[in-house]
């Protein structure tokens, strides 16, 4: 049985190639239980691919992923009971309203009807989706899609939340709400993994970070260790070896 001593997520040697391109190349990550973990990296670094393999949505070419000690690819059903996932850009049952999506998924997970109704009401209210009672998910804005996705991830009260870019396209007020919800979740013993490009946000929220670039882990561990004396952004630019551009060319624009 899983215990709290096991890390919330451990990946060993995850690999995935798309054709000739090695999207993820030997990723080892350990996310301690009860931590708020930020996964950062430039566009195309392999964050989304890594998370998809870690939760069981993409079969790795090699390597293993464990959630609280449960092998995701061997004890799939048990692992999936422990996590709530917000993937980036996936479709939903588009022709349901937000309430219907939550009701349907809650009942499908075997949660009693009254509990589903109660949780759905609260989630819609807290995430301010309750005004869109008659809107089908397909007509939701990008920010609303993120919020209904988050509600789906929270619905069954999982022990680990894996959220891919949860703050992208979300308005500042909703973002503050989501931050508060996630802090409360971690405060009560839950574990959270988020991926993001926004260093300031990760620095503000997370206690652990992993930096991925070109499908490899460049640095990982407690926030203080990874960023050292400077800011996370400085450490990140150092680690991925990026060169900040934008000062050359474009003379016609500024003349």
């Amino acid at each position: 049985m899983p215990t709290h001593r096991e890390p919330a997520l451990r990946t060993v040697g995850l690999r995935k190639a798309f054709g000739d391109h090695e999207a993820v190349d030997d990723i080892h990550l350990t996310v301690p239980a009860g931590s708020f973990y930020g996964l950062v990296g430039p566009n195309g670094a392999g964050k989304t691919t890594t998370l998809a393999m870690a939760v069981g949505l993409l079969r790795p070419d090699a390597g293993t992923a464990e959630i609280f000690g449960v092998d995701v690819w061997r004890d799939t059903v048990q692992a999936k009971g422990l996590i709530g996932v917000l993937p980036d850009g996936n479709a939903m049952p588009e022709r349901l309203t937000g309430r219907e999506v939550l009701t349907y998924l809650g009942l499908l997970r075997g949660i009693p009807h009254d509990t589903v109704a109660e949780r759905t009401d609260e989630l819609l209210q807290v995430l301010e989706l309750d005004t869109a009672e008659r809107t089908l998910v397909i007509e939701y804005s990008t920010g609303m899609r993120k919020k209904i996705g988050l509600a789906v991830a929270l619905l069954h009260a999982p022990r680990l939340l894996v959220l891919d870019e949860p703050f992208e396209a979300v308005d500042p007020v909703s973002a503050a709400t989501i931050r508060t919800i996630l802090r409360r979740f971690v405060g009560s013993g839950g574990s959270v993994i988020i991926s993001s490009h926004v260093m300031a946000l990760v620095e503000q929220l997370c206690d652990h970070v992993g930096v991925i670039s070109d499908g490899r882990v460049m640095a990982a561990g407690p926030l203080a260790d990874v960023r050292g004396a400077g800011t996370l952004e400085d450490a990140f630019v150092d680690l991925v070896g990026a060169r900040t551009g934008g000062t050359e060319g474009l003379a016609w624009l500024t003349s």
Binding site: G56, Q78, G81, N90, M92, E94, L105, L108
Partner: peptide
């Protein structure tokens, strides 16, 4: 026709049969 909405079925334990 439903596209990637399948992920929800896959992430819900035992939902494939249903």
């Amino acid at each position: 026709a439903d596209g990637t909405a399948l992920w929800l079925t896959l992430m819900t334990p035992g939902a494939e049969r249903a």
